[in-house]
Write a protein that binds this DNA or RNA. Structure first.
Length: 516
DNA sequence: TTAGGGTTAGGGTTAGGGTTAGAGCCGGTGCCCTGCT
């Protein structure tokens, strides 16, 4: 222990060329090295990845990093390889089957692997991992467990079982935003109630908030035009609909001269997404009209404006999205354009996010019918088609059914009593989740209509204290557009930059020189 | 000559039909797999 403590700075210098640790890093690394499970909530840009990359380098054994996006894994691996760390790999569906098999067979030669929660459920990979010494199990962007696990990506909820199967390695869950509620959800899902919490504040003192109520979308567009005619700064506009993002991008392109506008959402080809992201990072695009798909892993420091054309579904999401402004600490603004009709779309999304009671009945009926045939046919994906379930709804059911032992290895196990219990349990989960989401939306709507300080109301339920604003506070505290004089973006900075820096920028997707 | 690299498509999804007028009825988030030149 003492030995480690003395040498950590040296290791940081040797492997990452930094002289000192940033806030929280050293404490987390010491905990991890001592074999303690840690939940680390560190502000974005504070170098979360050092917290596991340093231990991975100096310790024996393998470090597994569960990452939500392939693009994030690829970024990280590129950066590490650029610093001459070769024993690292991202395993995902972009790899050919041959390539993947090779990695599986040589797992013992790696010190750090990045993998999605879905792939971690595959028996072949799991079996290989069980044969080697897994030292550290990291969940990057751990809020995904809570945010996506329950309905969208249930494999996030299976991580605790995986950790047990891997002989309980040390667990490190990292995120930039997690409310106390999300924190306990993460610890519950991982079945690690005794995790050490290393929580650092997430309020942003350099972001001012403006709330503007308008009567319809036309007025919102007019407001956008007027804002962008005054300010020439890198900006994101968030939408809850892909179509609205595309349409608005096209309107802005027509009506704003000298401004490069693009849209970005999850329905686009991967290649286009990467290209848009790159152009924005390099200041070749000024404004991105996007859905919530745009965000994780974007580390552009000089975004000055985050505009919400639609309200987000939760305040947590708002904090994450608005938090992408002013990473460089300079004065930035979050604007929310609100009209009374705006609750309709989020309501639709919440109502359709989970299957309803009819779907539940149908699934049970269908499975019962099959289980009564002599051969107990395996459950196959036909069920989606038969019962007209969408993919996410079926994934939700499948997770729940497996959890209750109704499906085992794709075979139906019929036990009348267990099924009754399972039915009521799943029914309750659906109700509770929907109610939870409705409450979260209600919080957003209350915040939007609040007359109090927006900063205070936004942060106070998430952390015990919050800092005073560095520049201006919010529209409820008297801040108006006239007060805002953002620093001008200077596109020539990039052109004059040192050639090594520019080359690095080109080679490292989504990142500048900072390891994050 | 062959292996490896590169590009590309589509699947997991939705949907309704007017005569009794009267104005916006809106759908987010990602993996993985198969098969193609």
């Amino acid at each position: 222990m003492q030995q480690h403590a003395l040498n950590l700075e040296d290791a940081l210098q040797t492997y990452f060329q930094y002289d000192t640790f940033r806030i929280g890093q050293k404490e987390i690394i010491q905990d991890v090295l001592a074999g303690k499970d840690v939940l680390g909530i560190l502000p974005t840009g504070s170098g979360k990845s050092i917290c596991y990359q340093l231990p991975a380098r100096i310790e024996e054994g393998l470090t597994i990093v569960v990452s939500p996006l392939i693009s994030l894994m690829i970024d990280q691996v590129k950066q590490l390889k650029a610093t001459n760390f070769k024993e690292v790999v991202a395993i995902n569906s972009f790899m050919s089957p041959t390539e993947r098999r090779n990695v599986y067979q040589n797992l013992v030669n790696y010190k750090l692997i990045y993998v999605s929660p879905e792939l971690l459920q595959q028996q072949e990979l799991l079996n290989r991992l069980k044969q080697i010494h897994v030292r550290l199990f990291v969940i990057d962007e751990a809020h995904c467990i809570s945010q996506w696990g329950h309905e969208f990506r249930p494999d996030y909820l299976k991580l605790s079982a995986t950790i047990k199967e891997l002989n309980d390695p040390t667990v490190l869950a990292l995120s930039a935003t997690a409310t106390p509620e999300v924190q306990s959800d993460i610890m519950n899902a991982l079945e690690k109630p005794a995790m050490i919490k290393r929580i650092y504040p997430m309020d942003r003192e350099n972001i001012a908030f403006i709330l503007e109520e308008v009567s319809n979308d036309h007025e919102k567009i007019d407001r956008l035009i007027s804002i962008f005619n005054t300010y020439h700064v890198p900006a994101l506009i968030y939408f809850t609909s892909r179509l609205a993002a595309e349409n608005t991008a096209s309107i802005l392109t027509q009506r704003l001269a000298n401004r490069d506008v693009a849209f970005y959402h999850g329905g686009m080809e991967q290649v286009d997404r990467v290209s848009i992201q790159q152009q924005f990072m390099n200041d070749q695009l000024d404004i991105i009209c996007c859905t919530s798909a745009f965000g994780m892993g974007i580390n552009k420091s000089n975004i000055r404006l985050i505009i919400h054309f639609h309200i987000p579904l939760q305040l947590e999401a708002y904090i994450q999205e608005v938090g992408r402004a002013g990473r460089d600490g300079k004065s930035s603004v979050g604007v929310l354009l609100f009209s009374q009709r705006d609750a309709i779309i989020p309501n639709h999304i919440i109502q359709n996010e989970l299957p309803d009671e009819t779907d539940l009945k149908n699934v049970f009926h269908y499975l019962y019918t099959i289980s009564q045939t002599e051969t107990k046919n395996p459950v196959d994906e036909q069920i989606e088609e038969q019962l007209q379930l969408n993919e996410n709804h079926w994934k939700f059911f499948k997770y729940q059914l497996e959890k209750h032992g109704m499906i085992n290895n794709n075979y139906i196990v019929y036990q009348e009593n267990d099924w009754k219990i399972a039915y009521h349990s799943i029914e309750q989960v659906i109700k509770q989740r929907m109610q939870y989401k409705e409450e979260k939306l209600h919080e957003v709507l209350s915040w939007v209509q609040s007359k109090n300080c927006l900063r205070k109301d936004l942060y106070q339920s998430f952390q015990s204290s919050y800092r005073q604003s560095m520049y201006q506070c919010c529209s409820n505290c008297g801040f108006s557009w006239n007060d805002w004089k953002p620093e001008k973006t200077n596109k020539t900075i990039e052109k004059n930059a040192d050639w090594k820096e520019r080359l690095k920028n080109l080679l490292l997707v989504g990142e500048t020189h900072e390891t994050n």
